[in-house]
Design a protein around this nucleic acid. Structure first.
Length: 840
RNA sequence: GCGAGCGUGCUGAAAUUGGUAAACAGACAGGACUUAAAAUCCUGCGGGUGGUAACACCCUUGUGGGUUCAAGUCCCACCGCUCGCACCA
């Protein structure tokens, strides 16, 4: 009898697939394409449970559609630029390149052992010059089309990593990687004009029918449209004016001051003013820390502006800390009666508080906007309801040319400059005559130097003795290279296009291939990329379209966001995390041995696996000990993909036990067959046959809808039934063959091996996907629930599609178990083949 | 503060358009086999009342109301948890 030897089996089939190029998609095919993509990994050196889960989900999908007859592309690559390589290089005295390559090699071999149906010939790595050469070309295209520009700006500066961070890399005022408090620093930076597409990126979310609502909502909030008006306030004794943005133009007559950000252009007038400079620095510091106190402070400029409709009213102008430069115009009009922040500010600086809603004087600040609210103290708006007033004033603003109605977005242009070595060089040079020159395509790639000194503070490319010195290729004038490199989110914003023609040397991608394969049909990855990566990618395809590449405008048709892999956590009394593996429990308390003594622990809640909490489990070890198929099956059986998965070694052991049992049962017992010759069946056989066909149907639906956990439950029901029911040999062979074909997409080595050993020639996946035999699935008998007043009283076994009257006769009849007095029945509710309810 | 989602056994979870709550697993307990253990197999496993018993009846999806013949599912209020954004004008 065969014993389940996962090592032998998995090696056998993995090398077979590679040898036969099983997962290379066809070319020039009439078949419908299917592009399955999981978010590519950063090559940290080791795969983690999150990867295992992500790639298992993707692989089940990919194999399912392949067996269903699609031409499937399922590629893999490496998001291989980025800071950890530099940090590791410093620590271990190796080059970032060598470190990265070693990691890729190791992780690739780990991924291979999972048995993924990947076309490895398409493998790409973003740090390879074969990749970033094309990326530099895309940058030049953006440059030509005014989609990239350079500007001085305050940036988020991470003092630990010594780099600039994008807004979304700042979490609670701290660097997303280092955790250091982020500072403001002024630098000249490259920006991508993502804001040019704000409107489109927002409204096209509606096209993404198969994206989770949650992700769409997050993007919507991130883009953050507000509709309102930009209103001009003329400075007294000057021709200049200040534009402010508001979403409540109807409150204009409640305005009592103007508040500006300390970074507002007008502030340049005060750059010699020591008092102001001090105030400004204080504000910037408060904004850095994102103080929760929300204390308001102001600086009186001494300037006044005219009210656009009441020329005789002059409003004082303040700088203040609560107006931000990066929203709207960095300037607002203060309407203290109807805005909490303005109210606090006005109270502090004794400014007028003009209530402009009837009967609201007693509950200021009144910030609601209700249909029934009526304006007062508002000139031509008096007596109008709030929404009507809004329309009127917008018209008046336009008529009087004191402003325009407009929308503002929260989304800012994307700063892509990074002062780091291990990233894609920006193909720009600064000539000695002061000109900024974009390189020509034939000068690409701009390669990174092999010998950076990473131990000095600051930018290694800047510090390099010769790299940045170059000559203008046209004029021969001396020039300095751009020493910033690109944010790695730039790398991952187009890799899905490169996969379509990964080995093309003279173009980033082949348009024909892209038109065939794009968009990605199913894109699978962590929800943590809901905003950053996914929004940038959506922007990229639009930007490329604008540059003349005629590609589909949404990159990912369907998005699956998988949950995290969690594990229990333990802590000592002095807050040290302890590995769960070392913990033992006794009398509902948890302990760890330390020499001869025991230390009591408290159990924390289950949290995402992380090094810092010491609750990680190495998937590679699990795979070698229990097998890839065991790991794969476990990863998808316990929770639906979008939810968090609770790691459990007991779960792994039980899964392995199950596979052992099936393997032992089937080896040397099964004759693999795909046909079943119909004959007269015994009751047992009929029941089993019917159930098997039902499972085919429901399992396929479940897989299609990413209900992998219930799909597995159905397979287990089927195997339980097949094990405990005595059936004929031909039925046994047929049903178990179906079982193997269904489970193949989850545990391919296991199913293939059993099938091959039982007589199948060729691959399981070359058989068509099983189709359920509907004629036999037709159940002739059915259970109907009998209820009295909606409460279940019992179940009756009757013929399918039985009429209401017939059923009632049986139930109310003398022989029936149900003691129902027919005369008292007020109403009978009957749902065919489901339920009959007597209301008494 | 704003927005979204979620609360079901000891645990992970299932439950078509409202129609048999707890499928499928895990943990645990008991039993068989064994000198013993492991492995394997079998049984039980939301709560309560009555009965020697097979069984019968009642309750049960965070809490309280409502709609309905019928509510885990729909509506209202409250409590709790998770996530995203956060001085966004």
């Amino acid at each position: 009898m065969g014993k389940y030897n996962h090592k032998r089996i998995e090696q056998r089939w993995q090398s077979y697939w590679i040898e036969k190029n099983t997962y290379k998609p066809e070319t020039n095919t009439e078949k419908k394409k299917f592009y399955v993509l999981e978010m590519f990994p950063y090559p940290s050196g080791q795969i983690h449970m999150g990867h295992l889960r992500n790639y298992t989900i993707g692989d089940v999908t990919s194999r399912f559609y392949k067996v269903k007859g699609y031409n499937v592309m399922h590629p893999m690559g490496w998001d291989s630029f980025g800071m950890p390589a530099e940090n590791a290089a410093i620590e271990n005295n190796v080059s970032p390149e060598a470190w990265t390559e070693k990691n890729i090699k190791n992780m690739k071999s780990q991924l291979m052992k999972i048995g993924l149906s990947i076309d490895w010939d398409r493998e790409i790595s973003t740090c390879s010059k074969n990749y970033y050469k094309h990326q530099q070309k895309l940058f030049l295209e953006f440059f030509k089309n005014d989609l990239v520009y350079k500007k001085d700006s305050f940036v988020n500066w991470d003092p630990v990593d010594k780099t600039v961070l994008a807004n979304e890399q700042v979490i609670d005022g701290k660097g997303w990687r280092s955790g250091a408090i982020v500072e403001k620093k002024k630098l000249s930076q490259w920006f991508l004009r993502i804001s040019r597409f704000s409107n489109e990126l927002l409204s096209d979310l509606e096209l993404l029918e198969s994206w989770p609502d949650k992700v769409k909502l997050m993007q919507k909030n991130w883009i953050g449209i507000s509709n309102g008006a930009e209103i001009k306030f003329k400075l007294v004794n000057s021709q200049k004016s200040i534009n402010v943005f508001t979403t409540r133009p109807e409150t204009l007559f409640g305005a009592s001051f103007l508040a500006l950000s300390v970074e507002h252009p007008i502030s340049s007038k005060f750059k010699e003013n020591k008092e102001f400079i001090e105030f400004r620095n204080q504000c910037l510091k408060m904004q850095e820390v994102r103080e929760s106190s929300q204390q308001k402070i102001g600086y009186k400029t001494g300037l006044f502006v005219e009210h656009p409709f009441l020329m005789n009213i002059k409003l004082p102008v303040y700088f203040c800390n609560y107006v931000l430069i990066n929203y709207g115009n960095g300037a607002i009009f203060g309407c203290p009666a109807h805005d909490e922040r303005d109210y606090d500010f006005a109270k502090k600086y004794n400014l007028k508080i003009n209530c402009i809603f009837e009967k609201k004087e007693s509950d200021l600040p009144y910030c609601d906007m209700k249909e029934e609210d009526i304006l007062t103290n508002s000139n031509f708006l008096n007596g109008k309801r709030v929404f009507e007033a809004q329309k009127i004033i917008l018209e008046e603003i336009m008529n009087k040319k004191v402003g325009v109605s407009c929308s503002k977005f929260r989304l800012k242009d994307w700063g892509v400059s990074r002062q780091r070595y291990w990233g894609c060089p920006i193909p720009i040079i600064y000539r000695e005559d002061g000109k900024v020159i974009a390189l020509e395509e034939n000068q690409l790639p701009v390669k990174l130097p092999k010998d950076p000194n990473l131990n000095l503070p600051g930018n290694p490319l800047e510090n390099h003795k010769s790299w940045k010195r170059t000559k203008c290729p046209k004029t021969g004038l001396k020039a300095i290279r751009e020493t910033d490199t690109l944010d790695t989110f730039f790398d991952s914003s187009w890799y899905f296009l490169r996969f379509c023609s990964p080995n093309l040397t003279d173009e980033p991608f082949n348009l024909g291939e892209v038109l065939y394969w794009m968009p990605v049909d199913h894109y699978i990855g962590g929800v943590e990329h809901a905003i950053l990566h996914l929004l940038y990618s959506r922007f990229f395809v639009r930007a490329l379209k604008l540059c003349g590449y005629d590609i589909p405008k949404e990159p990912f048709s369907k998005l699956i966001t998988q949950g995290m892999v969690c594990h229990e956590t333990f802590k000592t009394k002095d807050n040290k995390w302890i590995e769960p593996e070392k913990v033992f429990s006794k009398n509902n308390q948890f302990w760890i041995k330390s020499g001869d003594t025991k230390i009591e622990l408290t159990r924390g809640r289950s949290e995402k696996m992380s090094k810092s909490k010491k609750n990680i489990v190495d998937p590679d070890r699990i795979i070698s000990e229990y097998g890839a198929d065991t790991a794969r099956l476990f990863m998808i059986s316990d929770s639906p993909p979008e939810r968090d998965l609770e790691w459990s070694i007991d779960g792994i052991k039980a899964t392995r036990k199950y596979l052992d049992k099936i393997y032992t049962l089937l080896s040397n017992n099964l004759e693999f067959t795909i046909n079943y010759e119909k004959r007269k069946l015994s009751e047992q056989d009929k029941m089993v046959y019917t159930f098997t066909n039902k499972v085919i149907e429901e399992y396929s639906e479940d897989i299609k809808n990413y209900r992998f956990n219930t799909a597995v439950a159905k397979l287990r029901e089927l195997s339980n039934l097949l094990i405990k029911t005595k059936i004929e040999k031909d039925m046994f062979d047929f049903c178990w063959s179906i079982f193997l074909r269904l489970i193949y997409i989850i545990i391919p080595h296991f199913a293939q091996d059993l099938a091959t050993n039982s007589g199948l020639e060729g691959l399981v996946e070359d058989l068509d996907w099983p189709v359920s035999d509907k004629t036999h699935v037709e159940n002739k008998k059915i259970n109907i629930v009998v209820q009295i007043n909606g409460k279940k009283k019992g179940v009756v076994d009757v013929k399918k599609d039985l009429k209401k009257e017939t059923l009632m006769k049986t139930i109310l009849g003398k022989e029936s178990d149900y003691d129902i007095d027919e005369t008292k029945v007020k109403k009978v509710i009957f749902i065919p083949n489901k339920i009959i309810n007597f209301v008494i």
